[in-house]
Simulated assay, not measured.
Amino acid sequence: MSRPVLFFDSGVGGLSVLAAVKKALPEAPILYVADNGGFPYGTKSEEEIATRVPALLGRLVERYDPALLVIACNTASTIALPFIRSALQIPVVGTVPAIKPAALLSKSHVFGVLGTEATIRQPYVDHLSEEFASDCTVIRQGSANLVTLAEAKLRGEKSDLALYRAELDRLLQQPEGDRIDVVVLACTHFPLVKEELEAVSPRPLLFIDGSEGIARRARYLADQLARKCELKSLWPVKPNEKHPPKGQLLYTAPTEILMPFRENIKKRGLNEIVFL
């Protein structure tokens, strides 16, 4: 495999970012790392995340020599991104809540941020809200259950829609929650269950995430690196249906892989599963 784009998340949430980045970088081989050995991140302390993630990524970068790293996890990005960038010598794309576009899209000037508990309490979210949404009311809600539901969906398991409604209600029933017209999905797991959230919403809501912005940033950094290396492209061989770019899913701990899940990730271009 030529130098891959390394995706990193605690689980399979980063798959919601993968499609957009693959569209922006169709020629790039993909190594997707799911840190199931540390899953879930959203219920862990800042100290645990800031200690575990940079150390693990350091080992992964040394072993697999990626051209580019995409932290496809809001929790890891909002807590550990500065530590990761200072520790690594490759371009790093982080994932942060799409507060700026939400502020532009909200007609009521009241929008929700639905993420993990660890993400929504971060000062980084405060700074984004102050910088880009100072004229808006930003209502936050943490949910560990939606992470679990998204992981179950990728395994082919069906969940009661009432579980999704309960999580959404916790956001909408907060003070001024009846004025929310945009919901930021501030965990990469959550776009995987966007259809379910739309199905249980008591009124039309616009659910948004940051995948397109991440893809644009990844393309920009890849082009910048190619110019620095005096190359037209980091990946000169153009993919086609017979020879698609290689895609691997790597787990940091043993786990059972069932056929529905294997089929789901294969549709996303990850044809090989390996364990660290």
Rank of each mutant, 00 (worst) to 15 (best):
P40K: 10
G42Y: 02
E47H: 10
E47F: 08
E48G: 00
E48I: 08
E48S: 06
A50L: 11
T51S: 15
R52G: 04
R52C: 06
R52A: 08
V53T: 10
P54D: 04
A55E: 14
L57Y: 02
G58E: 14
R59N: 09
R59M: 10
L60F: 06
V61N: 01
E62C: 09
R63T: 15
R63N: 13
R63G: 12
Y64A: 00
D65C: 03
D65E: 15
D65V: 02
P66W: 14
A67F: 01
V70D: 07
V70Y: 01
I71C: 02
A72Y: 02
C73F: 08
T75C: 09
A76V: 13
S77H: 01
T78Y: 09
T78C: 15
T78R: 09
I79N: 02
A80W: 03
A80D: 11
F83Y: 14
F83L: 15
F83G: 06
R85D: 08
A87N: 00
L88D: 06
Q89W: 10
Q89T: 11
I90V: 10
P91W: 03
P91C: 07
V92Y: 02
V92D: 05
V93L: 06
T95L: 03
T95P: 07
V96N: 00
P97I: 05
P97W: 10
A98L: 11
A98G: 07
I99A: 00
K100Q: 06
A102Y: 04
S106M: 02
V110H: 07
V110K: 01
G112W: 12
L114W: 04
L114R: 05
A118L: 12
T119R: 02
R121L: 11
R121H: 13
P123H: 06
Y124G: 08
Y124R: 05
Y124C: 08
V125Q: 03
V125R: 00
D126F: 11
H127Y: 14
E130F: 06
E130P: 01
E131W: 09
E131D: 11
F132D: 10
F132N: 09
A133L: 10
A133D: 08
A133W: 08
A133M: 07
D135C: 00
C136L: 13
T137Y: 04
T137L: 12
V138W: 02
I139D: 07
R140Y: 08
Q141D: 00
Q141N: 00
Q141H: 01
Q141C: 00
G142Y: 05
S143W: 04
A144M: 15
L146W: 13
V147T: 07
